[in-house]
């Protein structure tokens, strides 16, 4: 299964908006936890879980610990979806 860039971006944005309760949140690939209000160790767990549910994927255990910016998140999701 493949997912195109725009769809990935939109669905990702929807999950971030849900988890961080911010309807105006817009994502850019270079954004990190520093750029998003409320991104801490707790919301990070919620975010990972939300992404797994929304995309129907499972991250590898070590990926859960390593995702640092939006670009990486997209790369791993794409890899998991097409796996």
């Amino acid at each position: 299964m493949k997912i195109d860039e725009t769809e990935l971006h939109d669905r990702l944005t929807a999950v971030f908006r849900e988890v961080f309760a911010d309807d105006g949140l817009n994502l850019r690939d270079e954004m990190t936890s520093q750029d998003i209000v409320g991104w801490d160790s707790v919301t990070y767990i919620n975010l990972m879980f939300g992404l797994e549910q929304a995309f129907g994927i499972r991250f590898r255990g070590n990926e859960l610990a390593e995702l640092r910016n939006i670009g990486e998140v997209k790369r791993v999701i794409t890899a998991r979806i097409s796996a």
């Binding site: 160790s41 767990i45 919620n46 879980f49 549910q53 991250f59 590898r60 255990g61 859960l64």
Partner: peptide, 15 residues
Amino acid sequence: DPRYWNLAKQAVALD
């Protein structure tokens, strides 16, 4: 879910 236990000591999976 052992991943969430190993990552964050979640003994009960979030779902």
